[in-house]
Design a binder for these strands. Structure first.
Length: 296
DNA sequence: GTGCAGGTCAGCT
DNA sequence: AGCTGACCTGCA
């Protein structure tokens, strides 16, 4: 949006064919963006990260003063990485809360992605009571088994996420083979239901209505629906409650009024953060999950 | 060996 | 409505 306006805090980046260069490291940290738990189809390659979304590929690396995104379609990834949103301003508002301010200091440069809808739904059905490494493995296995194989002159071979037609040919046994365990049955059913489902319509639907539509899918409960709406539909008036955000509420926001019911916790946090809830949740989630990990 | 991981669903009161 | 237990599987 504001490439040349010069106002401090706005994202500064330049686009050219097959490439985006970001000059504002404070608002774009690829590690925090990809490893904060919102996306599963990426790999840390050491010198760079690679991301596949739908059928598009991006290779991202950080230099001293800039981030370079080499990709198959710069318009696609400008949208995917939500480069037109002013995170500087957002972070100023969110930092009024001390806990969120700490989380933002830790996870600076994190951004909410605009992911491919079908891929996000499948990914978060797999995510239930699961760990991130295994979710990633399942998503990669699924893509390599039935997604379109793409041979790119610059980026080499990669696999698109399968279309709904390709997914519909899979059996329960196939899903088991991808390591999805007892979620295989749910995935098979959900794919059947998704064939009669207008994924694009959810973009123009009020959040409550969209939640109702998504939770009609097998394997999609309240928490997974919130994740799908946040990470694929960019709806910020949701607050996914899982084991982490549950702990976060009781540790930092509950005072002496501890809660155990997830719907209640969600209502409290939504009341607090309103239409910025999605951002707040993701900074808090990443902070709480990472700070507990062992230091080298 | 045991416990846990970004929960959901069925089957109970 | 609200609560409880079962549930694949890989990794610490």
């Amino acid at each position: 949006m504001c490439k040349l306006c010069g106002i401090i805090g706005f994202m500064k980046y330049t686009k050219e064919t097959g490439k985006i260069v970001i000059h504002n490291l404070q608002d774009f940290n690829i590690k925090h963006i990809l490893e904060c738990g919102q996306v599963f189809r990426f790999k840390n390659m050491g010198d760079y990260y690679e991301v596949v979304s739908a059928g598009e590929y991006a290779r991202i690396f950080t230099r001293e003063t800039e981030v370079v995104i080499e990709c198959t379609d710069e318009d696609y990834f400008e949208h995917y990485f939500d480069l037109k949103t002013n995170y500087g301003a957002l972070k100023t508002v969110l930092s009024k809360n001390k806990t969120v301010a700490d989380a933002i200091d830790f996870g600076y440069g994190m951004r909410i992605l605009r992911q491919y809808e079908l891929e996000t739904i499948i990914g978060f059905i797999i995510s239930a009571n699961n760990n991130i490494k295994r979710i990633q493995n399942s998503m990669h296995a699924l893509s390599e088994y039935c997604g379109q194989k793409i041979e790119h002159p610059k980026f080499g071979t990669y696999y698109a996420f399968p279309t709904i037609e390709q997914l519909s040919k899979l059996t329960v046994e196939d899903f088991v083979r991808f390591g999805t365990g007892y979620r295989a049955q749910q995935l098979k059913k959900a794919v059947e239901q998704l064939q009669q489902f207008d994924l694009f319509a959810l973009h123009n639907m009020p959040t409550q209505e969209a939640i109702k539509a998504l939770t009609s899918l097998t394997g999609v409960g309240a928490k997974v629906a919130d994740c799908i709406l946040l990470f694929a539909y960019y709806k910020m008036n949701v607050f996914p409650i899982d084991t982490w955000s549950h702990k976060i509420y009781n540790n930092y926001f509950a005072g002496k009024n501890l809660l155990e019911n997830r719907a209640q916790i969600r209502a409290e946090l939504l009341g607090k953060f309103k239409n910025l809830s999605g951002y707040a949740q993701q900074y808090l989630f990443y902070f709480e999950r990472e700070k507990g990990k062992k230091c080298p």
